[in-house]
Amino acid sequence: YTAFGDLEVFLHGLGLEHMTDLLKERDITLRHLLTMREDEFTKNGITSKDQQKILAALKELQ
Protein backbone atom coordinates (compact mmCIF):
# COMPACT_ATOMS: atom_id res chain seq x y z
CA TYR A 1 0.00 0.00 0.00
CA THR A 2 1.37 3.37 -1.00
CA ALA A 3 -0.21 6.67 -0.06
CA PHE A 4 0.04 9.36 -2.68
CA GLY A 5 1.39 12.71 -1.59
CA ASP A 6 0.11 16.14 -2.56
CA LEU A 7 2.57 16.40 -5.44
CA GLU A 8 1.49 13.10 -6.99
CA VAL A 9 -2.19 13.96 -6.67
CA PHE A 10 -1.65 17.41 -8.22
CA LEU A 11 0.36 16.01 -11.15
CA HIS A 12 -2.11 13.17 -11.71
CA GLY A 13 -4.98 15.65 -11.85
CA LEU A 14 -3.19 17.45 -14.68
CA GLY A 15 -2.25 14.26 -16.53
CA LEU A 16 1.42 14.87 -15.71
CA GLU A 17 2.17 11.67 -13.80
CA HIS A 18 5.31 11.22 -15.90
CA MET A 19 6.89 14.14 -14.05
CA THR A 20 6.63 12.62 -10.57
CA ASP A 21 10.00 10.84 -10.58
CA LEU A 22 11.77 13.81 -12.17
CA LEU A 23 10.53 16.19 -9.48
CA LYS A 24 11.19 13.77 -6.64
CA GLU A 25 14.77 13.20 -7.86
CA ARG A 26 15.28 16.95 -7.64
CA ASP A 27 13.59 17.21 -4.22
CA ILE A 28 10.90 19.51 -5.59
CA THR A 29 7.86 19.58 -3.34
CA LEU A 30 4.39 20.75 -4.31
CA ARG A 31 5.01 23.96 -2.38
CA HIS A 32 8.21 24.58 -4.36
CA LEU A 33 6.50 23.71 -7.65
CA LEU A 34 3.74 26.22 -6.93
CA THR A 35 6.26 29.03 -6.45
CA MET A 36 8.72 28.23 -9.24
CA ARG A 37 9.66 30.85 -11.80
CA GLU A 38 9.77 30.13 -15.53
CA ASP A 39 13.56 29.77 -15.61
CA GLU A 40 13.38 27.20 -12.79
CA PHE A 41 10.96 25.06 -14.79
CA THR A 42 13.39 24.98 -17.69
CA LYS A 43 16.43 24.39 -15.47
CA ASN A 44 14.68 21.40 -13.89
CA GLY A 45 13.82 19.76 -17.21
CA ILE A 46 10.13 20.65 -17.30
CA THR A 47 9.01 21.12 -20.89
CA SER A 48 7.11 24.21 -21.95
CA LYS A 49 4.01 22.10 -22.67
CA ASP A 50 4.00 20.67 -19.13
CA GLN A 51 4.88 24.08 -17.72
CA GLN A 52 1.84 25.61 -19.43
CA LYS A 53 -0.44 22.98 -17.87
CA ILE A 54 0.98 23.67 -14.40
CA LEU A 55 0.74 27.44 -14.76
CA ALA A 56 -2.84 27.23 -16.06
CA ALA A 57 -3.81 25.10 -13.05
CA LEU A 58 -2.13 27.56 -10.68
CA LYS A 59 -4.09 30.45 -12.20
CA GLU A 60 -7.32 28.57 -11.50
CA LEU A 61 -6.29 28.11 -7.86
CA GLN A 62 -5.77 31.82 -7.31
Rank of each mutant, 00 (worst) to 15 (best):
Y1W: 06
A3I: 09
F4H: 13
F4I: 13
G5R: 12
G5N: 10
G5K: 14
D6N: 10
D6C: 02
D6S: 09
D6I: 00
L7Q: 04
E8N: 10
E8M: 05
V9T: 15
F10L: 07
F10G: 02
F10S: 06
L11W: 00
L11G: 02
H12Q: 15
H12K: 15
G13A: 08
G13C: 05
L14W: 09
L14I: 13
G15W: 01
G15V: 00
L16M: 09
L16T: 01
L16H: 04
L16E: 01
E17L: 06
H18P: 04
M19C: 12
M19L: 15
T20A: 13
T20D: 03
T20C: 12
T20G: 08
L22M: 13
L23A: 04
L23H: 01
L23G: 02
K24C: 03
K24G: 03
R26A: 04
R26I: 00
D27C: 06
D27R: 11
I28R: 01
I28E: 01
T29L: 02
T29G: 08
T29N: 08
T29Y: 03
L30S: 04
L30M: 10
L30H: 03
L30P: 06
R31A: 10
L33P: 01
L33N: 00
L33M: 06
T35R: 09
M36D: 00
M36I: 00
D39A: 07
D39E: 14
D39I: 05
D39C: 06
D39Y: 07
E40S: 02
F41P: 03
F41M: 14
T42H: 11
T42A: 13
K43L: 08
K43D: 09
K43F: 06
N44I: 08
N44V: 14
G45Q: 04
G45P: 00
I46L: 04
I46G: 02
T47E: 14
T47V: 08
S48T: 12
S48Q: 12
K49T: 13
D50T: 02
D50C: 02
Q51I: 04
K53C: 05
K53Y: 01
I54C: 07
L55H: 07
L55S: 14
A56K: 14
A56G: 14
A56L: 10
L58D: 12
L58Y: 10
L58V: 14
K59S: 13
K59N: 08
K59P: 15
K59H: 06
E60P: 14
E60S: 12
L61G: 15
L61S: 15
Q62R: 13
Q62S: 09
